[in-house]
């Protein structure tokens, strides 16, 4: 389909505890490249981030409007760990490509569950050739939730289609008890669905179908 420019922030995290620090505070098993979700003690979403392992540091890419809350959430939990955080958002732009494209050396590309994530320095021009409507259509077609639409601070990850990013066997993290209880009792409350238009309370509208978060039917 094309390339869409995301409204993203990029934080660089250095220090020997960088992976264990993010792992201890988010829903997925963080051992390298992955996507993971930071949640509150009530299991509500703070942000979904893509973790990019660059060898001697990691980059986390999240949704710009949620940046301040995420930084507030993680920075107060840096105690004795070897961690430093730098914000390189103003030096880089983030794109999502629906196809695997060839990029230059300066552009970091990672294959994620949403598509190919591209982090490009401002000196590298990437043409964004998808409109917001086209990006929405791509998301509806593939049932991909997005920040500001389905992924918001008022929902938990299981309700907005991020269940695959909630690791079932990893140890404790903030919000884990609630998510584990929802799973074990089969009571996640709401779920992300794709329905034929018109859809009441649609979170993302497409031409023929839309995404919505609806109360899960008890089977």
């Amino acid at each position: 389909m094309g390339i869409y420019k995301l409204d993203s922030y990029v934080l660089i995290i250095r220090g020997k505890d960088r992976l264990s620090f993010i792992d201890g505070l988010s829903t997925n098993k963080v051992e390298g490249n992955c996507s993971t979700v930071f949640t509150t003690t009530a299991a509500k979403i703070i942000d979904l981030v893509d973790v990019i392992d660059m060898g001697d540091f990691i980059a986390i890419v999240g949704h710009q409007p949620y940046k301040d809350n995420l930084i507030q959430h993680i920075s107060k939990r840096v105690l004795n760990q070897d961690i430093s955080i730098v914000d390189i958002s103003s030096n880089n732009s983030v794109y999502l490509s629906t196809e695997d494209i060839v990029v230059g050396d300066k552009i970091t590309k990672r294959n994620t569950w949403r598509g190919y994530l591209l982090v490009a320095p401002n000196s590298e021009v990437i043409e964004s050739n998808m409109s917001e409507d086209e990006f929405s259509e791509y998301r509806v077609e593939n049932m991909i939730p997005h920040q500001g639409h389905e992924i918001t601070p008022s929902v938990h990850p299981l309700a907005c289609g991020l269940g695959d990013l909630v690791h079932e066997a990893k140890g404790c993290y903030i919000g884990q008890e609630i998510l584990a209880r929802m799973r074990s009792r089969g009571r996640q409350g709401k779920e992300l669905v794709k329905q034929t238009n018109p859809v009441e309370g649609a979170t993302t509208k497409g031409k023929t179908h839309s995404l919505a978060i609806v109360r899960k039917k008890i089977e």
Binding site: V10, I52, M54, D87, N91, K106, T108, P121
Partner: peptide, 16 residues
């Protein structure tokens, strides 16, 4: 990713 500018990019303040 432009990591050469990491040194000049703003450090996130970690309030001790």
């Amino acid at each position: 990713m432009d990591c050469n500018t990491c040194d000049t990019a703003p450090a996130v303040v970690i309030n001790k």
